[in-house]
Nucleic acid binder design. Structure first.
Lengths: 150, 150
DNA sequence: ATAATTAGGTACTGATAAGAACATATTGAT
DNA sequence: ATCAATATGTTCTTATCAGTACCTAATTAT
């Protein structure tokens, strides 16, 4: 296999896949953000991911929140800071392990979760339901494979 | 169809698809950024997308660059600013249409493109080639469908 | 031809984004 | 028991990111 050059590198067959992955995620992200903006919840996409992840739990560590929301820990600190300022979450340290911090929804946070989570899922469902069950299953399977490549 | 509640909304079958889409894109993005970092090119992912898009052309308008790289115009101004500071691109206005600005690679920019583009494609190819041609084609097809939902 | 609209770029804002350096706490190996 | 290695969060830096407002130029409608 010859070495790639600037001219022939763009002919690699995986490039369209890379572009479509970015394009699909971008289209989804814009729609996702639009729904949150129009709901009047004043939640950013990252803030909503945290609220929706904490909903129905008694609180989780930052590490667990990060693993589920894919927000890196350095970023998560700021996101939780702003949710705390809004009075939607509270933090406390755990006694058994002094390194860990528990983040949990406040009563206000629970109310926001109960109102915004179903509303936002409904908003997304409107689009996603136009994809058939077969395509959906196959897409999940392939996206898992793609994730596993890296 | 009954209205969604906070408790049953999470059972919507499209949620795993949403998660896998984000997960796959995230995994790719991290690998992509890692390759650029380790190459010593000191290009950020956005900067590299612009350089790689301009490569082999005589320059393009900001609008066209934005359409191809999926970078919104407000962001693109800053990205091009930093590439200009590094001496990799230059800007000039077009005479036929006073609104447009052409961005093109400088000689240094061309050298960076010729060196980094094949190198980076090779870096990505190593992972993407582990996906079979059938899966790749099907994934492109499904991702186009997903993009089209929104 | 003039006014209203659209198009292309820039400036600005608030909020991520990832990584690196740091501080502290826990765990593991010896 | 002690010391190195690991784990968890925060802080800091630089760069995106999307949106909005704004500016100028071009296009369209009347």
């Amino acid at each position: 296999m010859a070495k790639l050059t600037a001219t022939n590198a763009s002919e690699q067959p995986f490039i369209p896949l890379m572009q479509e992955l970015a394009g699909a995620f971008q289209a989804f992200s814009l729609y996702d953000a639009e729904g949150l903006r129009k709901s009047g919840s004043s939640l950013t996409p990252s803030q909503a991911r945290v609220i929706f992840t904490l909903g129905g739990t008694d609180g989780m560590t930052c590490k667990d929140i990060g693993d589920l929301t894919l927000i890196t820990k350095g970023t998560l600190t700021g996101v939780v800071d702003r949710l705390e300022e809004k009075g939607l979450v509270e933090r406390w340290s755990v006694e058994g392990d002094g390194r860990k911090t528990i983040v949990a929804l406040t009563r206000r946070g629970v109310r926001v979760y109960q109102k915004e989570f179903p509303r936002h899922i409904e908003f997304l469902k409107e689009k996603f339901d136009r994809l058939g069950a077969g395509d959906r299953k196959k897409a999940v399977e392939l996206l898992q494979k793609i994730k596993g490549l890296f």
